[in-house]
Amino acid sequence: MKKFVIEDSFWSLFPQAKIGVITCHGIDNTIKDSDQYRKMISSAEEEALKYLQDAKFSNNTVIKVWREAFQKFKTKKGARSSIEALLKRIDKGNHIGTINPLVDIYNTISLKYGLPCGGEDIDKFVGDISLTIAVGDEEFIPLGKDENSPPYEGEIVYKDDKGAICRCWNWREAVRTMLTENTVNAFLCIELVDESRLMDFENALKELWKLVQDNLGGRIKMSILDIDNKEIVVD
C-alpha cells in the first residue's frame, strides 16, 4: 500500500497551503486524437491571458504569489513555479504542445485556472511518496538529462524511497516517474498557496477529475490535503 504523505517540515513553511490530489487507476493514456487535446490547450491558452493583465510580468498576482513562496525555501538559481513557466510561454506568444492525454489535460487545467498542476506514474514510485524538505543527497535525474542532479539541502521536493521526483516543489520533474502513453495508474496534483483562490482551486480539481474520467476512463478519486489531513493512500 503506497501513501502520499505531506510532512511537518512542509507545513512549518506553508501552514495554509492545500494540495489537491487525483489518483487514477486503470486509465487508458494512449494517444488517439492529438487534435482534440491541441484544441483544449489552445482554448486554455486564451483563458490564461487574464492572469497577465500587468505589462510587467512579475507584477501579475499568479506570478508574484509563487515567487514569494519560492523565497521561503532553498531553490536552485532561476527556478520558477510550473505555472510561471507556462504563463511565460503564453506571454511570449508561444504555444504549449501536446505530449500525452494526461499531461495535456493537466496543462489545460493549469492554464485555465492559473495554478500549478503536475502528475506522476504511480507504478514507478518506490515506497511512499512525500512532500517534504530535501536532505540534499536524493537521486534526481531531470527530464531531458542523464546525469544525477540532487536537490539542495532545505529544498522542497516530492520524493520516494529511491530519490526526488520533483525539485523545487513544482519546478522540475524526474524522468523516472514521468507520465507516458503507457501509464495506467497516475498521481495528479494541484497546489494552492493563495488562500483567496480557494474556489478556483476547488473548481480546478473538480474539472481535472471530470476531464480524466470522461476521456481516459478508469477509477478516479479526488482528495484535498491540508495541515489537518496530511496523508492519503494512492494505490
Rank of each mutant, 00 (worst) to 15 (best):
K72Q: 15
V157P: 03
I31R: 10
F4P: 00
R176Q: 07
N59Q: 07
V184A: 12
S9C: 05
L115D: 05
F201Q: 00
N203P: 06
D128Y: 06
G154M: 07
G114R: 02
N229L: 10
I227M: 14
V62H: 03
V193L: 03
E147C: 07
N107E: 09
Q71P: 08
Y106C: 06
R80F: 12
M178R: 15
S43Y: 08
T75Q: 08
Y106Q: 11
M40N: 05
E202H: 03
M178E: 13
F125M: 02
I227C: 13
F10M: 08
I22H: 06
M178I: 12
V62Q: 03
L179E: 10
I63T: 04
S196M: 07
I27T: 00
E84M: 00
A55S: 15
D214M: 08
E84W: 08
S9Y: 04
D104E: 12
V157Q: 01
V184H: 13
L49E: 13
D200E: 14
I22M: 05
M199L: 13
G97Y: 03
N59T: 06
I220H: 02
F73S: 10
E207V: 04
L111T: 04
K18T: 03
N170K: 00
Q53K: 15
A186P: 10
K145S: 14
V233C: 04
E153Q: 13
K124W: 08
N59Y: 07
K2E: 05
A44R: 06
I129F: 07
D146I: 10
L198V: 06
K221V: 10
V175F: 08
G119E: 08
C117A: 14
V135L: 10
L52W: 02
D161R: 11
C166S: 11
C189D: 13
H25Y: 08
L87W: 13
C24L: 09
K72V: 04
S223K: 09
F187K: 03
Y113A: 03
A55M: 12
A85Y: 13
L208A: 01
R80V: 15
V65N: 01
L13I: 05
N100K: 09
I90H: 06
A44H: 01
K64Y: 01
W66N: 09
A79V: 09
T180L: 14
T180D: 11
M199S: 12
R89E: 11
H25C: 07
E7K: 15
D226A: 11
Y158V: 04
L225A: 13
D137L: 01
I232Q: 02
W209N: 14
W171E: 09
I165A: 02
G78I: 09
E173R: 11
E231D: 12
N100C: 15
I141L: 08
S9K: 11
I141A: 03
G163N: 06
N215E: 09
N185I: 04
T30G: 02
N60K: 07
K159A: 00
V193W: 05
W169L: 15
F187L: 07
G136N: 01
I109D: 12
N170F: 11
S43M: 04
D35M: 10
M222E: 14
Y106L: 15
E46C: 03
V212T: 02
P150S: 09
K145C: 11
M40Y: 06
E202L: 09
